[in-house]
């Protein structure tokens, strides 16, 4: 059962692009072993928040700490190696590599084989190669796409590509896995299957941060939800609390505030 140590702490995170404030003083945390939903209307700053966590954008101010260590200023690959992996809203696999190789690239984040180990086939290369291969096949099986291991990523079906992205992210052996709208473009049945899958991911010991548009999916799978609107955090709580929160309802239905765009 979820242990309540904080894996990720975001404090007073502010991000400005020129005159535009994409994130305004956002604070929240993710506890170990939970599935945290990050929701909000279009343009609320969810993906921006993701990008700040994974090092794509540098915060204007505020801090992001992962297991007690600041992530601000770290390189993107270092953040991944530290234990945060992600998927992308618009799928970004390596199209000319096979599904297996895509996952291997993820697994390689844990490896250190360099040109000499590879050239002379040193034991390190053999060990890491075997280990990575086993782990990758295991993940492909877990995702139910092992049949396509030898297929080029570009040639997988849309749903399989989404699943492959999750497998690739899991292969980096992260503590925290960030899924950016993993169900985009899925039909209700596929969404239900994915929901189960996300739960299974968590049950394997990963902490999950989930950006999602579909309220039902979020409500069904998350332990806790953080709601963003116009770059500000407007609510935080259990799915039940969020469901009844008037600010959230207003934000989604646009009752109280005028459409600002």
């Amino acid at each position: 059962m979820p242990d309540h140590t904080k894996v990720l702490e975001v404090e007073n995170l502010t991000l400005k692009f020129g005159g535009l404030t994409a994130l305004d003083d956002v604070s929240f945390h993710i506890a170990e072993g939970e599935i945290l939903g990050l929701i909000g209307p279009n343009g609320a700053g969810k993906t921006t928040c993701f990008n700040a966590i994974t090092g794509v954008y540098r915060p204007t101010s505020g801090s992001i700490r992962f297991r007690g260590e600041s992530l601000v200023g770290k390189k993107r690959f270092q953040i991944t190696q530290a234990g945060i992996a992600r998927t992308f809203q618009n799928i970004r696999l390596f199209p000319t590599m096979t599904a297996l190789e895509n996952v291997l690239v993820g697994a390689d984040a844990r490896h250190s084989t360099g040109i000499f180990s590879a050239l002379f086939r040193l034991p390190k290369h053999r060990r890491e190669e075997a280990e990575g291969h086993d782990r990758a096949m295991e993940l492909l099986r877990f995702m139910g796409i092992q049949r396509h291991a030898d297929e080029l990523a570009a040639n997988l079906s849309y749903g399989d590509q989404r699943r492959l992205e999750i497998a690739r992210a899991m292969a980096t052996n992260p503590k925290l896995i960030c899924l950016d709208e993993p169900a985009a473009g899925f039909n209700p049945e596929e969404k239900r299957v994915l929901m189960d899958l996300i739960r299974k991911v968590r049950d394997q010991g990963y902490t999950v941060l989930l950006i999602e548009h579909d309220m039902r999916l979020v409500m069904g799978v998350t332990d806790r939800i953080v709601v963003l609107e116009f770059g500000k955090l407007i609510a935080e709580g259990s799915p039940a609390e969020i469901r009844d929160n008037p600010a959230v309802i207003a934000a989604y239905l646009g009752v109280e505030e005028e459409d600002a765009s």
């Binding site: 994974t54 090092g55 794509v56 390189k75 993107r76 690959f77 991944t80 190696q81 992996a85 992600r86 992308f88 970004r92 696999l93 390596f94 199209p95 000319t96 590599m97 690239v105 993820g106 390689d108 984040a109 844990r110 690739r168 992210a169 980096t172």
Partner: peptide, 13 residues
Amino acid sequence: EDEDAAELMGVPT
């Protein structure tokens, strides 16, 4: 193939 994605997958590109 995709420098940004590679970097985010832990490859020191």
